[in-house]
Design a protein around this nucleic acid. Sequence first.
RNA 1: GGCGGCGUACCCAAGUGGUUAAGGGAGAGGUCUGCAAAACCUCCAUUCAGCGGUUCGAAUCCGCUCGCCGCCUCCA
Length: 474
Amino acid sequence: MKPFHIFNTLSRTVEEFRPLDPPNVSLYSCGPTVYLPQHLGNMRAFLFVDALKRALRLSGYRVRHVMNITDVGHMTSDEDAGEDKIEKTARAEGKTPREVADHYTTLFLRDADMLAIERPDVLCRATDHIADMVRLIERILEHGYAYVTPSGVYFDVEKWRGPSRVGRLSRQSLDEQYAGQRLEHSPDKKSPHDFALWVLNQPRHLMQWDSPWGRGYPGWHIECSAMSMKYLGETIDIHTGGTDHIPVHHENEIAQSESATGQPFVRYFVHNAFLVEKEGTKISKSAGKFPLLSDLVASGIHPLAFRLLCFGAKYRSEIVFNDEAIRAAQKNFEYFAEFARTLGDVEAGAPQDSAWAGEYRERFVEALNNDLNTPQALAVALELVAEAYRRDDRRVWNTLSELDSVLGLDLAGLRKAVRAAELPPEVARLIEERQAARRDRNYKLADELRRRLEELGYEVRDTRDSSSYVPKAV
RNA sequence: GGCGGCGUACCCAAGUGGUUAAGGGAGAGGUCUGCAAAACCUCCAUUCAGCGGUUCGAAUCCGCUCGCCGCCUCCA
């Protein structure tokens, strides 16, 4: 294991990462809410987690990753009393909540696959874990940090609050946090700070479960606590999410988890910044308009270009998303892909990389271990390829594929695809015709044939007396 | 109103006290070439929003000003 450093929101500093049980790392990520497609901003968060996992692995850690699918409990309005978003979509589309959740989960996983985001070891749906949530709420009640009312079971924030307990993440006192807030609160709450663990007596809701307190449904924070503990234990190493989760969601998760177990809930909270549009405005689900991965693909951008775009900035920085930025990322992707293709012709024989390549591996790992500096790591990878071209020395495959274990561009696949590619008969015929035309200096015909080959998906590259044919990047 | 953050070239973006301010894209010129593509080479911020201050030394620390954003309400 190499020393890994990461910014911990709990301390607001970059810390050396020390897992509880090295080299094992327990990692929990707040996953998607599946009532709408995930937009590019959402996907950035998952790309961040993917980079974190892969970087840890490259440095010798073994990561167990759990991610939730939120398919119940997110409300359209404040205070857990509004309409459930899943149900709202279900009503609008004439489907059951489960159908809605399944549909958008499938879409999410499809996009994640296209972005080469590895599947978590456990992908768990909230609605499959109602019993776990109920048990956790019972523990909180046993410890006296919650109370039952006709409208629900609430967490008693006033009782829990202490010098170091509340506002650890957000750096806000309760009074600060709620100053100026103009929401109406359930009259059953002892304090406006209290939040629902279990909601009762909302007969209009489609999704309801029996509980010791009556039929109802879980509050929107409890799922993460329950599932995190179930699959990773009462104290986990890393918990990730977007910065928007710092003040409420994660603050509440800590309170309810630690009041139930008496143990620290999370050792390292790591939060990613947003993807923003040109004016610096957040791309949000609720705003209604946001680009999807499918929009990018439709405009001719490779999904992995978006992956590289996200790698081009640190996870703690906002990324400004615009046409020029994504096109630059596309160029980067093509640059790597092109290099992998040229390796396709080189015999796979060289087991040993050239000595000069080792330095690049070191610098790459070093960058990642320094608070996941993916832009610096990406720069190193680009420099490695440039240097290989410059030296005309392609014996860098072992190094490059190690870097690709984090970059995730599947360069090995691209390389293999070129080697395995067989020319269809029609293409072969066109190529011969074109070569003849070039020999006859009939360049007009040669250019026409080049155009037709391109239509068939083959890019033509001439040298003085031969040509190569490369299937275009998909 | 409270809390937090940002402002580095045309665009994206590292760097956060000390040799020439990473890297990529775009742009300009060149090598190669029937052309094109790919690749490579050269050029492209005496300067880090502005103004003060601390320091032998600051893009990096402090203060103020301007501009922008996030969270506090579902949100990665």
